[in-house]
Design a protein around this nucleic acid. Structure first.
Lengths: 108, 108
DNA sequence: GTATATTTGTCAAAATATGACAAGAAAAAT
DNA sequence: ATTTTTCTTGTCATATTTTGACAAATATAC
């Protein structure tokens, strides 16, 4: 079963025998805040995904999938019946893509 | 093919022959901002979902599904490959639910 | 025990969202 | 065709949320 994004970062860090301070330095952030991220008390800032991918030589698209799926999971969990919402979201994404093709751009 | 949440609201409004001003009054908001919502230039505020459901006698859960799927669609669209992210999100929701069962509560 | 690592709490500053209003554009009514 | 109504867009002050930073408490290792 899947882990959260925070747990994923923690695993990357510990598997590479790094301290919070060491990884935080690489990501240009406070180690205390990184700890909160690993423990699900704060969100990882999207703009640092590239640094994370670079440092651990991860595929950025896979990392983004990890990241965004986590945001979505947190948002839906508790609020809403999951499967139906996600199915509908998928339809809507397709709709937005269609709309973009027709209109050129799309401001959301 | 699915519509956006804004288009959905607009459809509800026009099918019921209401002006923006009339619906905005029911939702306790500015009609100019409601217009932006219908046209995808602002987000509908979650806290007004209940008023919307009440006024149009909609099932709140179905409405929430419409609402949250829209948020997700907007977030993923452009950024990420859709299907894979949503599949992973579903797994993560299950994981969070499992985690909650074990821990009692979960702060995210 | 001391040192190192991690977690938690707090708070000011930055970023984002919201409410409000004015003015322009489009549609409808007369 | 001009007046009235409706809709759209722009702007901005305020409210809310997120972030960065640091201090202090706790836990782990040596």
């Amino acid at each position: 079963m899947k882990e959260t994004f925070g747990e994923y970062v923690k695993r990357l860090r510990t598997e590479n025998n790094l301290t919070l301070t060491q990884l935080a330095a690489q990501l240009d952030m406070d180690s205390a805040n990184l700890s909160k991220i690993e423990n699900g008390k704060r969100d990882f800032d999207e703009k640092r995904l590239i640094k994370l991918a670079d440092f651990f030589s991860l595929n950025i698209d896979i990392l983004k999938t990890e990241f965004f799926s986590d945001l979505i999971a947190k948002k839906i969990y508790q609020t809403n019946y999951c499967h139906e919402t996600l199915m509908l979201a998928e339809e809507k994404i397709k709709y937005l893509q269609q709309k973009q093709i027709k209109q050129g751009t799309l401001n959301l």
